[in-house]
Design a protein around this nucleic acid. Structure first.
Lengths: 194, 194, 194, 194
DNA sequence: CATGAATGAGCCTTCATTCAT
DNA sequence: AATGAATGAAGGCTCATTCAT
């Protein structure tokens, strides 16, 4: 289906060149159609990239839900570690998605339509709820030191953000080593037996 | 001096709209000159933004050196905390600089001329050296648990990166609260008395 | 067809003003379209004039082949004279073509794409072969003094070149008189009965 | 003197790139001054190239007068041959001058100011007078067949034009051979003993 | 003399978009 | 569903020229 091909090419070029440089004509060329044909499927350039962004978010959302699902029965330590690993894995195996995501986030950000905004905050909420449960059970099971759950969540999210940035900056090898170092310090910080 | 005014306007528009949308004509208009006049001072659009980037980096560099200078005689805990606060303060008080910086980093990144690359890696080296000393002395003075200094540095840099990202995403109030939460967890993680 | 109209206007303006002064905007204006529309048919200014040049060459080539065809059964004297007259006729009746041709030759010369180069040398080769036959038969039939055919060709080509230049410099009347004078001397020089 | 340096650079760039591409700024750069400084010596771009053209013509004129002076006491055959050789020598030894000359002739031609026009026709007149004398004496001395002097002049000028064009097209070696061939045929055509 | 600053005009080109087919 | 033709808007850039210093 041409409509999907357009979206895919758009997302690939977005990752590579950013919104402004991912021209409709360069997208059309890669798809193998003429530029005006795009308008048979999308009503504007913004429309194309809105679709791209929505897809990207949904893909990420479902991946995260999947990761969360898999770790239900592990220890807290394993759970948190798996989240970080899952997150890294997602970006490491499909760096183009990450790049596209980043670029859209930086460029469309102020214009984000409400539907997308919603998906985004829903995602964050889900993740927070999960972390809340995880940390609560960690404290209960005495895997984790007793401390404000809100703080724990904030620090874990910050950890995720830092890791995300380093994902972009560093090569895979270097990144993986850093991830281990960072995780080890972090876990020592919150765990009881430290 | 018009040359500087151009640079300043360029940096402001870069922060606001990004490289592609910060057109020479819109810059000229804001400066109050005609577009071709820009070419009396810079030989191309890229040249203008190279200058902007260089300035940005140097400004940041000198700020960081300044922060580092101020904290020489504090405890390790204070030192680390001051670095985070200093970093945050820089970005919070001049968010435009941060945004400009971010946008240039994403766009010029692969083309960065060598001079800029150098300033950048020099900056990182300086910071690493400082952290190395700080952590080493922290371990020696038994403020910090004995653990690989390299790991400590990695985790602190990751913390900084995470904070940097949240600086962009969150409003100042929310950010400051999160910073405290994150710092508290982090320090607990590495300090001895925890 | 707009594409052809563009080419024709381009060639007329080239003749009149030369490559640099034949701007795309002035061409578009004369064609009755807006400048960017040109890009629907040609991918650059150079591309437009490449097409012009190619046409010009082909037109000239086919004309020359036609002249050559017509004179097969004449005496050698008539043949040579007809070539000069044919050549002059071509340029006199369509001076714009000559001027366009001249201007492109001077401007694109070093950049001439290979296809054009080929047409050009093919044309020269054809003409040389014809002259060779003509002169050979002239000597055989004793219309022409026995002398190196190569020299005869060289001198005839030089004659053509000289005539070509004078075609540009002089008014038609003056030119025609000079042509007769020059031809008479030339023929006396090579013919037997002189 | 800067004024002369400007003129020289202008002429060199004219030869290389033609009028439109020989920008004042590129001239200034090569001279080692800033563009507006040119206006201290010439009142416009056209003015600069007018001066160039005038110089070129005068230089050529004086050279031709010199050639003419040297051949006063030779045979007619030698005289004519020397003119051709002199002409060729001038262009072969300073091809830049020829190119500049050609380009200006093709581009300024319709605009040539009257002073230059005058020099030009004066030059032609001088040359014609010389040829008239030469041919008259050639006929008198029976070196040349008796034929209208006007025709002889026309054919010799045409020969010169043809040679001039070939000077531009062919490499020096090839050109020299062709010159000999052409001359030999030409002389045979007009001389008595043929 | 020379130049720094500025500019109006204009060039080639690209882009998103429309519309008739 | 697709495209050829066309375009308004704009972009980066160069040029000849002016003018105050």
């Amino acid at each position: 289906m041409t409509k999907n091909k357009i979206k895919e090419v758009a997302y690939r070029q977005l990752a590579e060149k950013g919104y402004d440089r991912a021209t409709l004509s360069s997208i059309a060329k890669e798809v193998g159609i003429k530029t005006p044909s795009i308008y048979a499927f999308y009503k504007s350039k913004e429309d194309v990239f809105m679709a791209v962004y929505k897809d990207l978010l949904e893909d990420y959302y479902s991946y995260i839900k999947c990761v969360i699902g898999k770790i239900k029965n592990s220890t807290v330590k394993e759970q948190l570690y798996e989240i970080l690993i899952g997150l890294s894995h997602y970006h490491l195996t499909q760096p183009e998605k990450t790049q596209a995501y980043t670029k859209l986030a930086f460029f469309l950000a102020p214009t984000l339509n409400s539907e997308i905004q919603e998906t985004f905050s829903e995602m964050e909420k889900d993740l927070c709820k999960l972390l809340e449960n995880t940390f609560a059970s960690g404290i209960e099971k005495e895997e984790i030191k007793n401390q404000p759950i809100e703080d724990l969540i904030a620090s874990f999210l910050c950890l995720m953000d830092g890791i995300f940035l380093e994902l972009i900056y560093y090569q895979e090898d270097k990144f993986k080593r850093r991830l281990e170092q960072v995780w080890s310090i972090y876990w020592n910080g919150i765990s009881k037996e430290s």
